[in-house]
């Protein structure tokens, strides 16, 4: 574990050095991130122009959820998304062989090797929105709330990572990266609003089949004091199951992989 942390820090350093060569793009990126979050907030405002609750959640609560959504999206774009095209390239060119012969875990390497730092702006803006939402609500979370929040957000991160890896591993058979990340975005969009907004079988599907409910909803409700021990436990369990699935699927794909190089 310690060794992997050290290697991750090394990835971090090399990517940072690389990124600092393109400092002039910083302003443009900052601008586009700001625009993104403003648009999300405006969208919520359009809805709240007609109502005062969404799936039983007030405006400030929805903003907190949106903040968490933005943070997670930033993290995905920071660590996971930049690696997808590279894996496809590795598979197509046969350079995956070099990755496999490295003395570290291949799944760890292909999923976290490349980081895009400016995406962390979204993380900062998301956290800012969470704090603003809490301020609007005049609510200070207790230690217990924060504890449940941390546990469920950790589970959410594992779930996101596992789903992403499940999708990315299909690259061994389906070769078009735009489509894969587009598919993930479509799923992730469903977590933008409180899951209580969906009705009937759709809500069941988004909770148990595609665990969208555990991505933003459980952490957000924990943070506003509406935590539920059962839901948090379920999210941890789902995270473990999905991580196990992702791991198995990756091993299965590797076992069937025949190198493309000569």
């Amino acid at each position: 574990m310690r060794r992997y942390w050290r290697i991750f820090k090394e990835f971090f350093r090399t990517c940072l050095v690389e990124e600092l060569e393109y400092r002039s793009e910083f302003m443009g990126n900052l601008f586009s991130s700001l625009l993104g979050i403003i648009v999300s907030i405006l969208m919520v405002q359009i809805f709240f122009y007609q109502t005062d609750q969404l799936g039983g959640w007030a405006y400030a609560d929805v903003l907190i959820l949106l903040g968490i959504f933005n943070t997670l999206q930033g993290l995905i774009n920071f660590a996971l998304r930049p690696n997808m095209p590279r894996l496809l390239l590795h598979i197509r060119m046969g350079t995956l062989d070099y990755v496999l012969t490295k003395p570290i875990d291949s799944m760890f390497f292909v999923s976290l090797r490349h980081l895009v730092f400016w995406r962390l702006i979204d993380v900062v803006l998301g956290i800012g929105l969470v704090i603003y939402g809490l301020g609007q609500k005049h609510f200070i979370p207790s230690f217990l709330d924060v504890g449940f929040f941390l546990l469920s957000i950790l589970a959410a991160l594992v779930i996101i990572y596992s789903l992403w890896m499940l999708l990315m591993t299909t690259a061994f058979w389906v070769i078009r990266m735009d489509d894969l990340s587009f598919l993930f975005n479509s799923f992730f969009e469903t977590t933008r609003f409180p899951i209580t907004m969906y009705k009937g079988w759709l809500r069941m599907a988004l909770t148990y089949v595609l665990p969208a409910a555990f991505v933003t909803f459980t952490p957000a409700s924990s943070l506003i004091g509406k935590w539920d021990g059962g839901a948090t436990l379920a999210s941890v369990l789902v995270a473990v199951i999905f991580f196990w699935l992702a791991r198995r699927f990756w091993k299965f794909a590797l076992a069937n992989y025949t190198s493309a190089s000569s």
């Binding site: 969404l54 799936g55 975005n185 933008r192």
Partner: peptide
């Protein structure tokens, strides 16, 4: 995939009215 966002927006409105 492009159907997802309109469908989510639809859910929101059906929830409001």
């Amino acid at each position: 995939g492009t159907m997802v966002q309109p469908l989510i927006t639809m859910m929101v409105w059906m929830n409001i009215y």
